[in-house]
């Protein structure tokens, strides 16, 4: 619509400069105007909805069950590993020392893979208190605030997370409408082996042209 109007105005300007005879000028004036009118002059203006208000929605961080429970070797009816809450055992069994390597772990913790830099169990865990974690400066934090622990080393990721460009989310972009739930670091990264684990992709393209031709060739 806008383009047609511009067209009309340039034609008018052109007609004035060149000083064409009146008949030509009128035609130059009228023809694009008439077409612009016929094409799109009749649209009723569409009302816009009001702009977003002040942000009132809360940003919550999802609490992964991994922080309060551990997978057992049992499975439920759907084949998912049954999880056992930490307190089930640790309310009675209170270890006084932490193991120095993963091979010393027993019971539920057997077979734990540990690939997280040069950290040791004691870097984060506290002997005798499975609900707390210890920061590098020695202060204790609640297990639910585990992300504070990650923040100590992973500065760039923390910065990106805080600006919504790392870690998934669901909910509202417009916080005046509703809140948002952010993923916890531990939702995607097992603190013991934080590298993102490969998985098979979903929904392979099956569009016309791809299905008939099995592969794109030899590269």
């Amino acid at each position: 619509m806008i383009l047609s109007k511009e067209h009309a105005s340039t034609d008018v300007a052109l007609a004035r400069r060149v000083q064409w005879p009146p008949a030509v000028r009128i035609t130059a004036l009228l023809a694009p105007a008439a077409i612009a009118l016929a094409c799109c002059g009749s649209d009723p203006p569409r009302a816009l909805r009001p702009p977003p208000g002040p942000p009132t929605g809360r940003i919550e961080i999802h609490q992964p069950e991994r922080l309060t429970s551990i997978a057992s070797d049992q499975r439920d009816a759907l084949g998912r590993p049954l999880r056992v809450a930490c307190v089930t055992c640790h309310s009675q069994r209170v270890p006084t020392t932490l193991p120095s390597t993963v091979t010393e772990l027993d019971e539920f913790h057997q077979g734990l893979r540990f690939e997280h830099g040069a950290l040791s169990c004691g870097s984060c865990h506290v002997a005798g208190d499975q609900r707390s974690l210890r920061r590098a400066d020695g202060t204790m934090i609640d297990m639910r605030d585990a992300m504070d622990l990650c923040r100590q080393c992973h500065g760039p990721q923390t910065r990106d997370y805080d600006h919504g460009s790392h870690g998934g989310m669901t909910g509202h972009w417009d916080l005046s409408v509703g809140g948002r739930v952010r993923n916890h670091c531990v939702d995607c990264h097992d603190p013991h082996t934080p590298a993102f684990q490969p998985s098979l992709p979903v929904l392979p393209p099956r569009d016309h042209g791809i299905t008939r031709q099995p592969s794109r060739g030899d590269h």
Binding site: L3, S4, H7, P32, I35, A38, C39, C40
Partner: peptide, 11 residues
């Protein structure tokens, strides 16, 4: 059709 439909002319 110009004038009847939505003729996207001259774009």
């Amino acid at each position: 059709i110009p004038g009847i439909g939505r003729f996207h002319w001259p774009v």
